[in-house]
Nucleic acid binder design. Structure first.
Length: 557
RNA sequence: UGGCCUAUGGUGUAACUGGCAACACAUCUGGUUUUGGUCCAGAAGAGUCUAGGUUCGAGCCCUAGUAGGCCAACCA
């Protein structure tokens, strides 16, 4: 690995500074802390690449920790999906942890805090508590229960824990400062009472810790040195530190929370809540629908781990609002697939071509390069015969000289085959071209090295032999939304901007070698784009997903 | 009537902590090419939100504005 002098992002600079100031490098430890209430999306990829990237850079452990403190929204199905995605991206976590593993410790600490007068049970409903909280510009009012005795608090908290009180009748609150300019410091709720089974602890608990009370403590328990989260948690930092001070002893490692900006991607949304809405409203088929910006959706769409990691590293991390153009992501897959995807010939919109001077009934095998970008990719054989399909848009009766394709009286090269000249367009009663008659020049066979085969022609077309072609379902995916930022217009619902043409299903004719393609195999359909075998594909019914089109600099039609 | 964060080409990040703004994507030219792909060469595009200040010198420091974001779930 050549150590390129790449400038450090601000997170890396924080770590470098800590190291310089004497922080023990062997104590560096990070974590990626998803909540198992939905699938990971491209925004999480940035966080994953940041945390695991740091782990690799400093040879430090990185825990995968599920922030599972809200049993109402969380499920083990999400846990499994998340693990699969992180693994697929190619990262290895040091330990698989759960905030729920710490429920007992958290409870014991809470009891201590009650004894220390740092927490109390409030017996008001959430509306009342919110009311007393004040506003950002006005101080809050103390709860009437704020000065409850330690004995009463202990007794009530115990009752809450044992499910002897009504759900939501009481909460445990930290006693901090009802007039703090930081709303989060106005006696935040530490525990709510929920008589709800948890996906891991089942019915062991009737009280569940809130994020603020669980997250920093989890970091502390795991000896996480640096805890990175997104910008909206900035105001939580003060509380994060306050809680850790409550439970830590002198000299113990106190994790450091720092915040970075979440990545926004144009023409899509990166919000688990909205993604869930797309799934539930059936706009898409599932969390892994290839139009979804989820890791699983991108995987099914044909994205590679490398393309996603390169993308994340290229866009870097910062602290400002951002909107990254999808073209950046698209560049990343093309860049990767160009080097690795075998080239094949497929015709998406077939037009039959009859080569009138090619002997009837005859066929031959031609040699085709698998990938000109990869010397080791080898060659394969392609059947050629008298009747072939080409793309409808590759033929015109007449066209200007900017049209590098087939037109009457002119010659083009058939990729890996011969030169053909269009002689006659056959039309139906409505004047639609249904067939083209051509002649070929036997001297122009590809790879023959003849003078004739070196002739300059207007262009090169892909094709597939009619007799040998296999039909395949091809799903043409496009951007999910028609605008950059579907959430920008506060008057409208983001669903109003769903692209009605985000999926078009067609039947294409593909070269026979594709019948052996397996799920997730990726190909470049020459002159068209990159495609990937969908999970729905079978040997009887091939299904390909379009990952992305080829870059197209032709400004004609 | 508050607190915190942010402000660099169309987009995203840089600028060795003060030395006349770089890289990538996107855009446009030209060349190569059995993919109008790739690759190669090149162009255009910001003078760093504004106004002051410190300094020989400021995108980097200070002050005051302006703009945007976040904070009043028993969500995370």
């Amino acid at each position: 690995m050549s150590e390129e002098k790449k400038s450090l992002n601000f997170i890396e600079q924080i770590i470098e500074t800590d190291l310089k100031e004497g922080f023990d490098k062997s104590k560096l430890k990070f974590r990626f802390p998803p909540e198992p209430n939905g699938y990971l999306h491209i925004g999480h990829a940035s966080s994953i690449c940041l945390n695991f990237g740091l782990g690799l850079r400093y040879n430090a452990p990185v825990n995968l920790r599920f922030d599972d403190t809200n049993p109402i929204k969380e499920e083990s199905a999400y846990v499994n999906a998340i693990k699969k995605d992180v693994e697929w991206l190619g990262f290895e976590w040091a330990e698989e942890c759960y905030a729920s593993d710490y429920f007992q410790q958290l409870y014991e600490w809470a009891v201590e805090m009650i004894k220390n007068g740092q927490a109390y049970v409030d017996s008001q409903d959430s509306e009342k508590i919110a009311e007393q909280k004040g506003t950002p510009t006005e101080p809050g009012q103390p709860s009437p229960h704020r000065e409850r005795s330690v004995e009463d608090n202990l007794e009530l908290f115990e009752a809450m824990k044992n499910g002897l009180t009504e759900p939501r009748a009481h909460v445990l609150r930290a006693k901090i400062d009802m007039s703090s300019p930081n709303m989060l410091m106005r006696d935040p709720v530490m525990y709510r009472t929920l008589h709800q089974a948890h996906h891991r602890t089942e019915n062991d608990w009737c009280i569940y810790p809130m994020y603020d009370w669980a997250h920093g403590e989890s970091d502390f328990i795991e000896n996480i040195s640096h805890s990175f989260c997104t910008l909206e948690f900035q105001p939580h930092r003060e509380l994060y530190n306050w809680f850790i001070k409550c439970v830590s002893q002198e000299g113990e490692l106190e994790p450091k929370q720092r915040e970075f900006a979440r990545r926004n991607l144009s023409h899509t949304i990166v919000s688990k809540r909205k993604l869930l809405q797309l799934v539930e409203s059936k706009v898409v088929d599932s969390w892994d629908d290839p139009r979804m910006p989820t890791i699983s959706g991108l995987r099914r769409r044909g994205y590679t781990p490398a393309s996603i990691k390169n993308f994340a590293n290229d866009i870097g991390i910062g602290k400002r609002e951002n909107m990254i153009d999808v073209s950046r992501l698209e560049f990343s897959v093309r860049d990767d697939l160009n080097k690795t995807a075998p080239r094949v010939m497929t015709v998406l919109d077939p037009l039959k071509v009859v080569i009138t001077n090619y002997p009837e009934g005859e066929e031959e095998m031609l040699v085709a390069e698998n990938n000109p970008e990869d010397e080791n990719s080898g060659t394969r054989e392609l059947p050629f015969s008298r009747e072939i399909y080409i793309e409808k848009e590759d033929f015109r009766e007449e066209a200007n000289r900017k049209f590098f394709r087939l037109k009457l009286g002119k010659e083009v090269r058939l990729k890996n085959a011969y030169f053909i000249k269009a002689e006659k367009a056959i039309k139906d009663d409505d004047g639609n071209i249904i067939e083209v008659h051509c002649t070929y020049d036997p001297e122009t066979k590809s790879g023959s090295g003849t003078e004739a085969s070196k002739r300059k022609v207007k262009g090169t077309l892909h094709w597939v032999s009619v007799k040998h072609a296999k039909p395949a379902e091809v799903r043409l995916y496009d951007r999910l939304f028609t605008v950059d930022d579907p959430t920008a217009d506060k008057e409208k619902d983001f669903l109003d901007f769903v692209n009605p043409e985000s999926l078009k299903v067609i039947t294409a004719q593909v070269e026979p070698s594709l019948t052996s393609a397996k799920e997730l195999d990726k190909f470049q359909f020459q002159r068209i784009g990159y495609f990937c075998v969908d999970q729905d594909s079978t040997s009887d019914h091939l299904v390909f997903n379009r990952t992305v089109t080829l870059r197209d600099s032709w400004k004609g039609k």
